[in-house]
Structures are given as structure tokens and as C-alpha cells.
Design a protein around this nucleic acid. Structure first.
Length: 424
RNA sequence: GUGAUUGUAGCUCAGUUGGUUAGAGCGUCGGAUUGUGAUUCCGAAGGCCGCCGGUUCGAGCCCGGUCAGUCACCCCA
């Protein structure tokens, strides 16, 4: 029988890597909190209909990338391919809009059935930040700053903010028509992919990587030149706010997002160290989404930030740094010492903020020291027959390589307290 | 879904034109040192050579399939 492996495109996270995840998730929560955003947790599966309507029937995500199944009640369910639709559903279900604008974030997995590649998984994780009920560009600037701050906290200067506007229901149809007028006469000269895109989603041709498309893409009209007055004003205001916040960006008139619901602002943070899947964070405004899902007309802006990709950038950019040594390795030599030391270790684990490691097996001192190194312990605590006889215990500083002898009398709690003091 | 490429010890990788008991470094465990670790020396354990089938007297090596990793397209976090 073959051993079972993790499903394709999924991966396990375990020590020491899991420590990076804990830290990143903590930083996401901390930064969201600073902006007054609260956490929302929604199911990882929802009615298929929610994503079909929310993400868009004709998007690649809905057409071919969803994990959809029929449950035992004959309902069509889907593992969420992104977090926003479920959040909107929950907000509507609990009538949170009755309480004014909602600032929410969610942290968790999403699922897309795609061929894995660098920075692309079938189960991935993201921080999803959503601001509902604020129509002004201040909300756009606010969510962008959240992402910018998170990147800055990890010293990721490498990620560049690309900004664009895809217009609204007034000017986008006009732009689409202009694009079709531009590309249609040259349809035969376009790449096969772009010929297909011409019918389905002409905007996509703009970020084609095919050399054949290049001359036509370069001369194509730009949305940014055809924005209606309202969209133009929104875009200009956002730029002013970003400048005021000191957030650098470049206007990239060719960024297009894959989800149907975006209106006006779209943005991406891209990193050069990620390979082909270079977007660390992508988002924008979605003023029509809430209504589309059966709610009252409600503006919204938000983004998704890929945690796997974020950590990839951090790892590529960060050099090797010596791991911090912390905590105590407790070493008992002999049965009597073990019996005496065990309650002390128990108390240390209750009261010390640092880890306490112990291997109660009857091993050589050398082996215990090796374990201490492996555990990254800062201190070694040694108790053997000699110490027992003198009611002492040896505390070794593994960095300074120096031993200290401490009194070992009284109840375990007292000994533990002395040790905590001696090691801080 | 399309294309390329790679699967040999826990990890990184050798393995000759197909030829007997498949190797190294690191790591692990033990010893040198009956109580002092990151250096050194000695020893040991650890392999369905991804899986299934085929060719062959004989397959880690050749062929087909399959699963998985990696990279790119498509698409996106």
C-alpha cells in the first residue's frame, strides 16, 4: 500500500516554518486593529450560487477553478475561491449595514482547482480586508495603507503598488466598445489566446504576454483616458490621498483584475522576486457587489493579500540570521534528580514566559547538551547526585559558556521563581 | 486544461555502454570524555531507486502508463 500524500497543490506547514505563519497572522490582526477593522469568520464552503453571482459567471474562477460538490441533501456547495463573497453574504444575513459602514477583515484558506506553480496552490491563504459603506476615495486610500503598512513592517520595499481605474457602469461599456473597435480589425494578427479574449473579455488583452499582441496593445486606448467625470474625480482624489499618506505608486493603465465585480479603483502590489505569479496583494473597489448579492446598494473596497506569496517574498529578501536562543533545557542525571527536577520543570512551564525543554530519558550529559542546541535553548539546568547532596543546582549560560550554582531548597515553586529571575 | 523538466537514505545529491551485496556529505543515534554542547576523531542505524506494467538471461539505468514535485502558458493571492 502506498503512503498517502497531501493532495496536489496543498502543503503542510510545521516547525520551524509555522512560527513565521503565527507571526504574520499576528501582524495582520495587529495592523487591521489599528485601522478599526474587526475580524469576521465565515464558512469555508458556501452555496455555489453565491460565488457564481458574486465572482461572476464568466470568470475563469467560476467556469473552471471551483471545488464544487453536491452534499447529501442534494445542494450544490463550493469551497470558497476567495473570501469577499462569503463576507458580503454574512454581513447581509446579519443585517450589519443597519449599523453603518462595516470595516472587516478575514484570515483563512481559499481553494482553486489550478495547476500548481511557483506561488500558486490549490489551497492558499489570504488576508482579506473589506470596507463597506464608504463611497469616497478615503476608503480606497485606507485599505491600501493597510497593505502598505504590512509590507513595510517586514521591510518589503521591493513590492511596488500599481494603480488603475476600470471605470464604472457609465464609462466602462464605452471603453469596452472602444477596445473592440481597436482590436477587431486586427483580430487575425492577434495571438490565439487574445482572439478568444476578444469575445469574452477584451480588457484581458491588455496584459497579454504574447509578443504578437504587443504592437496592438501599445496603441490601444486606455481606460484612464476615457473615464467619466465621476470616476476621474474619484481617481484624482485617491491619488491625492496616497500622496498625502506618503504611499508611492505607479499608474499602470494595463492592470486588469480577474473578478467581475471591480469598479473604479483596482490595485496590485507586485514583487519581482516571485516569478510569474508576482502579485502579492490585489484589490480594488466593488460598488456593485453587495447589490448583486441581494443587498442594498452599498459601496465597498478591499483587497486580498496572499500569505504564501507574502512569506515567499520575506524569505527571498531576508538573509540568514542567527536564530534567537531562548528558554531552558532541563537536564536530570539519575532517578533521584529526575524526581526532584520534574516538579520544578512543571512550575517553570506554568510561570515562565519562555519555553522549558526536558528529555527525561537516561542519557549522557553530552546528549542532553546536543538536545539543548537543537532546541535552541539559551540555558541548561543541570541536576545530578553532586548537586542533590549540596542542595544546589547548576544553571549554565549556553551562550557565555559559564556555569552558576544556585541554591536548590524549598518547594518547587520557589526554585522555579529563583530560576525565572536568574534567566531574565 | 497545455508545454517543459525532475523523482535514489530524514535533507542535498553521486551512481560508468543495462551486470553480483546501491554510495557520499549533512543530520540522527552511540562511543572517544563513568558530569559540560556549536570544532575534531571512530562506529552504527537508516533505501519497495515514486508507483504499475513492458523489453531483457539480467533494469536505479531502456520503453509505456500513472502519481507527485518544479517551472512556464492560461489565470491569479
Amino acid at each position: 500500500m502506498n503512503p498517502i500524500s497531501a493532495p496536489r497543490g496543498t502543503r503542510d506547514v510545521y516547525p520551524p516554518e509555522s512560527a513565521h505563519w503565527i507571526r504574520l497572522e499576528g501582524d495582520c490582526r495587529d495592523i487591521a486593529r489599528r485601522f478599526g477593522y474587526g475580524e469576521i469568520r465565515t464558512p469555508i464552503f458556501e452555496a455555489t450560487e453565491l460565488f457564481a453571482r458574486g465572482v461572476g459567471e464568466t470568470t475563469d474562477i467560476v467556469e473552471k477553478e471551483m471545488y464544487t460538490f453536491t452534499d447529501k441533501g442534494d445542494r450544490s456547495m463550493t469551497l470558497r475561491p476567495e473570501l469577499t463573497a462569503g463576507i458580503v453574504r454574512a454581513v447581509l444575513e446579519h443585517k450589519l449595514f443597519a449599523q453603518g459602514p462595516q470595516r472587516l477583515y478575514a484570515l483563512g484558506p481559499f481553494f482553486r482547482y489550478e495547476r500548481p506553480q511557483a506561488g500558486r496552490y490549490r489551497q492558499a491563504h489570504q488576508l482579506s480586508v473589506e470596507c463597506f459603506g464608504v463611497a469616497g476615495a478615503d476608503a480606497d486610500a485606507e485599505v491600501i495603507q493597510i497593505a502598505a503598512l504590512l509590507l513595510a513592517r517586514y521591510g518589503i520595499a521591493d513590492a511596488a503598488l500599481n494603480l488603475n481605474s476600470v471605470g464604472d457602469s457609465v464609462c466602462r461599456p464605452r471603453y469596452r466598445a472602444a477596445l473592440l473597435d481597436h482590436f477587431r480589425p486586427h483580430a487575425d494578427a492577434l495571438s490565439a489566446d487574445s482572439q478568444r479574449r476578444l469575445e469574452r473579455n477584451p480588457l484581458r488583452i491588455l496584459d497579454s504576454k504574447d509578443e504578437k499582441d504587443r504592437p496592438f496593445v501599445e496603441t490601444a486606448p486606455l481606460m484612464i483616458d476615457l473615464l467619466c467625470d465621476d470616476c476621474r474625480a474619484h481617481f484624482d482624489t485617491l491619488r491625492r490621498y496616497l500622496d498625502a499618506l506618503g504611499i508611492a505608486y505607479t499608474i499602470n493603465p494595463r492592470i486588469v483584475r480577474g473578478l467581475d465585480y471591480y469598479t473604479r479603483t483596482v490595485f496590485e502590489f507586485v514583487s519581482s522576486v516571485l516569478g510569474a505569479q508576482s502579485t502579492v496583494c490585489g484589490g480594488g473597489r466593488y460598488d456593485g457587489l453587495v447589490e448583486e448579492l441581494g443587498g442594498p446598494p452599498t459601496p465597498g473596497v478591499g483587497f486580498g493579500l496572499g500569505l504564501e506569496r507574502f512569506l515567499m517574498v520575506v524569505e527571498k529578501l531576508a538573509g540568514e540570521h542567527a536564530p534567537v536562543r531562548r528558554g531552558i533545557q532541563a537536564i536530570a542525571l539519575g532517578d533521584a534528580a529526575r524526581d526532584r527536577l520534574m516538579p520544578v520543570v512543571g512550575k517553570l512551564r506554568e510561570t515562565s514566559g519562555e519555553p522549558t525543554f526536558a528529555d527525561w530519558q537516561d542519557r549522557k550529559l553530552t546528549a542532553h547538551f546536543k538536545a539543548a542546541d537543537r532546541n535552541g535553548a539559551r540555558w541548561a539546568l543541570i541536576l545530578g547526585d553532586d548537586e542533590l547532596a549540596k542542595e544546589e543546582i547548576v544553571l549554565r549560560d549556553l551562550l557565555a559558556r559559564e556555569d552558576r550554582r544556585l541554591p536548590m531548597a524549598g518547594p518547587a515553586a520557589e526554585v522555579a521563581r529563583t530560576l525565572v529571575e536568574a534567566t531574565t
